[in-house]
C-alpha cells in the first residue's frame, strides 16, 4: 500500500513538465527515503534523477519498496487536470497495475480521482558516484535558461568554460558566433540573484544545446540552478525543489575525435 499526500500539488505538475519531453517512460521508485526516479533519454545521452523526500509530503505511507512504470506523457495529461492550488495524493496497491492520482481543491469542495494504467519498464539504473566537481556555478535559473535559449538560435552546441575569471558560454553556427560571459556577482539584494563560481581548476566542455534547453523546462521549480562540471565528465544541472529534494540532469559531453 502506497499513499503520498503532497500539499503543494503544483510541484508535481512542474516536475512532470520538466521531464516529460526528455523521457518517455520511467519507473517511479517509492521507498522509506522518498519518491524518486532515474531515467535516460532514448539516446542515452542525458539522464534525469529526481528525489522528493518523504519528509516533504504531508502524509507518506510506503509499506514496502514499490517501482511503478509510468508513461510520462500520460501522467502529465492526468496531472494537468489538477488545479495549481490542489493537494495531490498518489495511491497504489502493492502488486497492482494502476496508480490513482487524487486531487483536492484547497477548500475541499471538489475531489477528483484519476486512475492511470501502469506499465512494465526494463529498468536501466546507472550507479552515479558522488563526485567532487572541479567547477561549480550557481546562478539565477532564468538567466541560465535565457543564455541557453539565446545561444541555440545561433548554434547547436555550447562550449562552457569555467575559470576564476568567470564562466563563458560560446557557440558557433552558419550565421556567426556568440559568447556570453558571466562573472561572479554576490553584491545583489536577494541571494537567489547571485552568481557564484567555485573553481578548483579550469574546466571546458562541449554540450548539445538541444538537451540544455530541455533541462531549462525545470526553471519554474527553482530560482537558482547549479551547474557542476569536471573535465571529461558529464555536467550536472541541478534544480533544488524547496524543502523536498532535487531534480538533476546529467548530460554527456561532446568530445573532438
Amino acid at each position: 500500500m502506497l499513499e503520498l499526500r503532497l500539499l503543494q500539488g503544483s510541484l508535481l505538475k512542474k516536475v512532470l513538465e520538466a521531464i516529460k519531453d526528455l523521457v518517455t517512460d520511467a519507473n517511479f521508485d517509492c521507498s522509506a527515503t522518498g519518491f524518486s526516479l532515474q531515467a535516460m533519454d532514448s539516446s542515452h545521452v542525458a539522464l534525469v534523477a529526481l528525489l522528493l523526500r518523504a519528509e516533504g509530503f504531508e502524509h507518506y505511507r510506503c509499506d514496502r519498496n514499490l517501482s511503478m512504470g509510468m508513461n510520462l506523457n500520460n501522467m502529465s495529461k492526468m496531472l494537468k487536470c489538477a488545479g495549481n492550488d490542489d493537494i495531490i495524493t498518489i495511491k497504489a496497491d502493492d502488486g497492482g497495475d494502476t496508480v490513482t492520482f487524487m486531487f483536492e481543491s484547497p477548500n475541499q469542495d471538489k475531489i477528483s480521482d484519476f486512475e492511470m494504467k501502469l506499465m512494465d519498464i526494463d529498468s536501466e539504473h546507472l550507479g552515479i558516484p558522488e563526485t567532487e566537481y572541479e567547477a561549480i556555478i550557481r546562478m539565477p535559473s532564468q538567466e541560465f535558461a535565457r543564455i541557453c535559449r539565446d545561444l541555440s538560435t545561433i548554434g547547436d552546441t555550447v562550449v562552457i568554460s569555467a575559470s576564476k575569471e568567470g564562466v563563458k558560454f560560446s557557440t558557433k553556427g552558419d550565421i556567426g558566433s556568440a559568447n556570453v560571459v558571466c562573472r561572479q556577482n554576490t553584491s545583489v539584494d536577494k541571494p537567489e540573484d547571485a552568481t557564484v563560481i567555485e573553481i578548483q581548476q579550469p574546466v571546458s566542455l562541449t554540450f548539445a544545446l538541444r538537451y540544455m534547453n530541455s533541462f531549462t523546462k525545470a526553471t519554474p521549480l527553482s530560482n537558482t540552478v547549479t551547474v557542476s562540471m569536471s573535465n571529461e565528465l558529464p555536467v550536472v544541472v541541478e534544480y533544488k525543489i524547496a524543502e523536498m529534494g532535487y531534480i538533476r540532469f546529467y548530460l554527456a559531453p561532446k568530445i573532438e575525435e
Binding site: H44, V45, L47, L126, P129
Partner: peptide, 14 residues
C-alpha cells in the same frame, strides 16, 4: 564535428 558520448561511457549499470 565533435562526437557525442553516452552515459554508459561514464557510469555503470547497477
Amino acid at each position: 564535428h565533435p562526437n557525442q558520448l553516452t552515459m554508459s561511457k561514464f557510469f555503470d549499470y547497477t
